[in-house]
Design a protein around this nucleic acid. Structure first.
Length: 613
DNA sequence: ATAGGGTTAG
């Protein structure tokens, strides 16, 4: 069904024309024409080029073997080889041509690959299902899965039979374009209609899609399903699910699957370990990380550049920049090459510590090694400068990006916007925001949060509220962070009723308040002297199974003291300590001041008696 | 002697 529907959409007038929404690739006019021509390639039309150049096929094979591994240095080289091949006598086999095509796809010369395939067809090279599969893979990587389906139609037209590889490639293409539901439906139909004998690879493709769309539990179920159907999960199946679980912070379940692998004598790979180590890093479970590294050593699996990158990133984010630096030296010693991701992670570590000069030094090191900074590298630096209030330098870096062929993301722009608001450069912030919109940057919830926070921070709560309503009407769904920002802003603007209102609205929308939401409310009520309501909020959060944290208690205790409710404050201190939290600096100094007071309040005297026996 | 699957960054 889904396949047929895809066919009809493919033949619909202009689905093949590049649409602005798919503009990640530069689709040239010639590419588009070539893509369009693919449809009519049911029958070969012309004969081979008459100007044959005699060349040995073995020589060609050697060249292709080499280029398949390393890729062509220049696109022109590949096209020259192709041209030569067309003029060879006898004509090289379709295998040679398919190898060339695969090499082009591997080196990401997708539009060139499309023209080569098209030319192969028009020169009556006897292309087969494998050639088609390679071409479909090319379309999918080129983010044109619709063209992939057009080729599937061509396969049927020429009387070929698509195989499991054809469908796997198409499924992966759909998934990579966020069409997982379509992929899943198509997969189910293929199974139901017995169109293919499913193997591990096609299952793995779907399992990966499930993990990427947040359905890890379903992925585990599909793994069990394939076992039951006698299609044994392999190392990729397990690694995919382990990665999904690790990203969901379910690392212990992931460890269970790793153990299951060795029970079934499926050798884990470095990828399986990398996913798990990454998961452990996100939870700062350092002991587990060390254990996993030892485990790898025992299994004679060496860490690769991914492993090191993950570890460098974890150390850098934890502030351990020295260790991160050392890890990079270690990986070089062991013959691994740090790449832009590795160096960017280290730079991020320095930026987080505010050590911008050291971050710049890393940038110099990497460029001296011929590693070019990417969008993320720039974003890290821009973020570093904004956090240091050096917004002008950040803007300068932003302007430099297009000159280096880099496109800032919505996150990059948002960082600058945040910087302008924080430094109270309101006019510029407004102008910058307009410029962002003019550039066609698509706003997301995080950007809106920055905008709303910036407005509130600068006392423009009214503007923030109207922005919030506009945001809702634009189809952006406000999350709990947005509500937190606004409720906080309203309280700071003494708009208690409106804050209360907004809180009830978020409950009505089915959103779950977090500990931050409650803390904001408690602080707001305390500030207004509404201690009763603040305390009721504490009870409410307990009812809603939201645990109070140190901030909650400290806020409430300070509120009590400020309102001369010494007894209540004292009871809460006991409760806080019982829950394992401590007074923070500001509560402690407040308490210290109170104890010096010479007021004859009975509750205060009791308090003094308790803390100064 | 040709094709498809898993890992690194707010």
């Amino acid at each position: 069904m889904i396949v047929r529907r895809a066919f009809t959409t493919c033949f619909n007038s202009n689905t093949l024309l590049p649409s602005p929404s798919q503009g990640t690739n530069t689709v040239t006019a010639t590419t588009t024409i070539t893509l369009l021509r693919l449809h009519s390639l049911s029958q070969p039309s012309t004969y081979p080029n008459p100007n044959h150049i005699p060349t040995h096929h073995t020589e060609l094979q050697q060249l292709l073997n080499e280029k398949c591994k390393l890729g062509f240095d220049k696109l022109d080289d590949a096209l020259v080889v192709f041209d030569k091949m067309l003029r060879m006598k006898p004509l090289p086999t379709v295998i040679h041509f398919t190898q060339l095509l695969a090499a082009l796809v591997k080196t990401k010369h997708y539009s060139a690959a499309v023209s080569v395939f098209s030319k192969m067809c028009s020169c009556s090279i006897p292309v087969n299902i494998i050639t088609y599969n390679t071409a479909i893979n090319c379309c999918c990587h080129f983010k044109r899965v619709d063209c992939g389906f057009a080729l599937l139609a061509a396969i049927f037209k020429r009387g070929f039979v698509p195989d499991v590889v054809t469908y796997t490639t198409l499924l992966r293409g759909l998934i990579s374009q966020d069409k997982f539901l379509e992929a899943e439906l198509m997969f189910k139909n293929l199974l139901k209609c017995n169109q293919i004998q499913p193997n591990a690879v096609i299952f793995n493709t779907i399992i990966n899609g499930q993990c990427k769309t947040g359905n890890t539990s379903q992925a585990v179920m599909l793994l069990r399903y394939m076992e039951n159907k006698g299609c044994m999960p392999d190392v990729v199946t397990y690694s995919t699910v382990i990665d999904g679980l690790s990203k969901d912070r379910l690392v212990d379940e992931a460890l269970g699957l790793l153990a299951e692998m060795s029970d079934k004598s499926i050798q884990p790979s470095v990828v399986s370990y990398n996913s798990l180590i990454h998961g452990m890093c996100n939870l700062s479970r350092w002991d587990d990380i060390i254990q996993l590294l030892n485990d790898m050593d025992r299994h004679k699996i060496s860490p690769d550049e991914h492993t090191y990158s993950i570890l460098v990133d974890a150390h850098a984010r934890d502030g351990k920049v020295k260790d991160a630096q050392y890890l990079i030296e270690l990986m070089i010693q062991r013959g691994q090459n740090p790449n832009v991701v590795t160096y960017s992670a280290l730079m991020d570590g320095y930026c987080l510590r505010g050590e911008l000069n050291k971050a710049l030094a890393v940038l110099r090191t990497m460029t001296s090694k011929g590693i070019l900074p990417n969008t993320r590298t720039y974003s890290i630096l821009i973020n570093g400068y904004c956090k240091k209030m050096k917004v002008d330098t950040a803007i300068h870096l932003l302007e430099e990006m297009p000159l280096k062929g880099l496109t800032p993301t919505v996150e990059t722009y948002s960082t600058i916007l945040d910087g302008l608001f924080r430094t109270r450069r309101l006019d510029e912030a407004h102008k910058f925001y307009k410029k962002m919109l003019n550039k066609g940057v698509k706003l997301n919830v995080v950007t809106c949060g920055i905008l709303l926070h910036g407005l509130c921070w600068n006392g423009l709560v009214g503007e923030a509220m109207s922005m919030f309503h506009k945001m809702e009407s634009c189809g952006l769904v406000p999350d709990i962070c947005i509500y937190n920002i606004l409720i906080n802003g309203l309280f700071r603007d003494n708009k208690v009723d409106k804050a209360r209102n907004l809180y009830h609205n978020l409950l009505l929308k089915g959103l779950q308040p977090t500990v931050i939401t409650y803390n904001i409310m408690i602080q707001g009520f305390c500030h207004e002297g509404l201690l009763e309501e603040a305390y009721k909020t504490l009870l409410e959060m307990e009812e809603n199974n939201c645990l109070a944290n140190g901030v909650t208690y400290n806020t409430l205790i300070r509120g009590c003291f400020k309102n001369k409710m010494y007894h209540g404050g004292c009871v809460l201190i006991d409760e806080m300590v019982a829950h394992g939290f401590k007074a923070d600096a500001s509560t402690a100094s407040m308490l210290f001041d109170l104890l010096q007071l010479k007021e004859q309040d009975p509750a205060l005297l009791a308090l003094q008696k308790k803390f100064m026996p």
